[in-house]
Design a protein around this nucleic acid. Structure first.
Lengths: 265, 265
DNA sequence: TCTTGACTCTCCCCTTTGGGCAGGGCTTAA
DNA sequence: TTAAGCCCTGCCCAAAGGGGAGAGTCAAGA
């Protein structure tokens, strides 16, 4: 068991409450290399001082922190490490918040209740709409800043082109945007008349729902999308394009948006 | 876009907020097969009525429910489905409870504080100990019942063999026990003298810590293991075998156990 | 009717965190 | 010396898709 007071891999596994497989992996990834490797046999020998690091890794894994981030925690200063753990903890809590909202909905819909009916759907028939727009692939983390920047930029462009803005800015979600999927998102500013460089959205019908306050936050907002999609299909129509999110007001505490989805008969 | 009012895969992806890749996977797994597959081209066409199921799958995936369990939710009765969602929600909450306990510890130890010192370590020197025992590979879910049954069985065996029980029952964790790892666990009943069928644990020194109440619950109990392992190595000793958990009292509200770890110089 | 561009298909490889096993070497105690 | 127990590397596997190649399909404009 002892080779100059070193642990064999199985003894170290037992002491650290990690598995042998995990230890070999952490060696390979360089986040917990053994203190000593016999060059002849390739046997791994661990020093008792490595138990603290092993224990930390075990605890972070128990928090489902990815090894890539654990590496950062181990390499950074204590202050950075604490910050990363806290950031991870915050994301766990946020995921939990999502679940807290979602679970009652799922259970209600499994029971046959219909939470969609809580939303009031309106129909709008629109003429062709000239818009200035910016389109980009973006993940959730870059979403807010892309929207802010684009709206600011488009408003400036409208002024420069002497174009008259005819409504609230909105975004067309051509693909989902989340941690893994990145749109694209087309941020639009509606105009009274076309100008050079403007696009034109086709005329058509929109199914709309308006939400305010906390209903605008993720993941609650998905309920509004579902309600609109549900309404369209339940009335025998078909979706005809990507859904839009109209930003009437986005100040903290008084958010006000609409979800609008094109459809046809 | 419409082939007898069916969605193409990309239209359905957009309406359901799922990705095309996911839809193809759900088809392959049989949990969301398209309403129609063109036998010539292999193209998938979805019916609007399938949106509800798609939405449900999306929501359950957002709760990180595995597809295998989602299949069960979809196939079972509404009551069963609700029960499975609630069970999943309970496990999410439990995982969160683990994190709530672990995070402050991790942060404290990153800051260089030492929560181990909160435990009082005692040293015991034991003679060879005859025991009746039962050893088994078992996962967490079977843990409690295996312990209960084994202790009951061993006590009956002791009576039958006219052996005198000399202490509280305990378990030797030869390997970790959790969702993926299954021990083995050796449940032991200490005897005053050997009888036929009894084993003998070797004499030696034990580092011990006693915990009560909520400190006995997972994951808090891991802190006690860490504290003992830490004490042993910090004092220049080595662990000599697997840790033991002595069950002095296990009634709800008045749990009382010791963690004992053999070591040598 | 043909072409072109967008859409879709299948097939294969990649990710992450290990678990499980095979074949072979190492160590140690009897 | 031999057998048992450890340990090594290397390979395949899981879940839930993402990414891309190469080939076939669809629909709209010329």
């Amino acid at each position: 068991m002892n080779r100059n007071h070193h642990f064999t891999i199985s003894a170290f596994a037992e002491a650290s409450l990690l598995s042998i497989k995990a230890l070999r992996l952490y060696d390979e990834l360089g986040i917990l290399p053994p203190a000593l490797i016999d060059p002849d046999s390739g046997y791994r020998y661990y020093h008792p001082d490595q138990l603290g690091r092993a224990r930390l890794i075990r605890q972070l894994r128990q928090l489902e922190m990815p090894l890539a981030i654990i590496r950062g925690v181990l390499e950074g200063s204590p202050a950075e490490a604490v910050a990363q753990v806290q950031a991870h903890w915050a994301s766990l809590q946020q995921q939990m918040q999502v679940a807290r909202v979602l679970v009652p909905d799922v259970i209600a819909s499994l029971k046959g209740e219909n939470p969609m009916s809580a939303f009031h759907i309106e129909i709008k028939t629109t003429a062709a709409q000239p818009v200035l727009s910016r389109t980009k692939h973006v993940y959730v983390d870059g979403l807010d800043s892309f929207i802010q920047n684009s709206v600011t930029e488009l408003k400036a462009l409208a002024v420069q082109q002497h174009a008259v803005v005819s409504g609230s800015p909105f975004g067309i979600f051509h693909g989902q945007i989340n941690d893994e999927s990145n749109g694209p998102l087309q941020v639009c500013l509606p105009l009274q008349a076309a100008v050079p460089g403007s696009d034109e959205l086709p005329a058509g019908k929109l199914a709309c729902v308006t939400v305010k306050g906390s209903e605008c936050d993720f993941p609650n907002i998905l309920k509004a999308y579902d309600a609109v999609a549900d309404w369209i299909t339940r009335h025998g129509y078909q979706m005809a394009g990507s859904p839009r999110e109209v930003w009437h007001a986005m100040e903290r505490g008084s958010e006000h948006m609409s979800i609008e989805w094109p459809f046809n008969d």
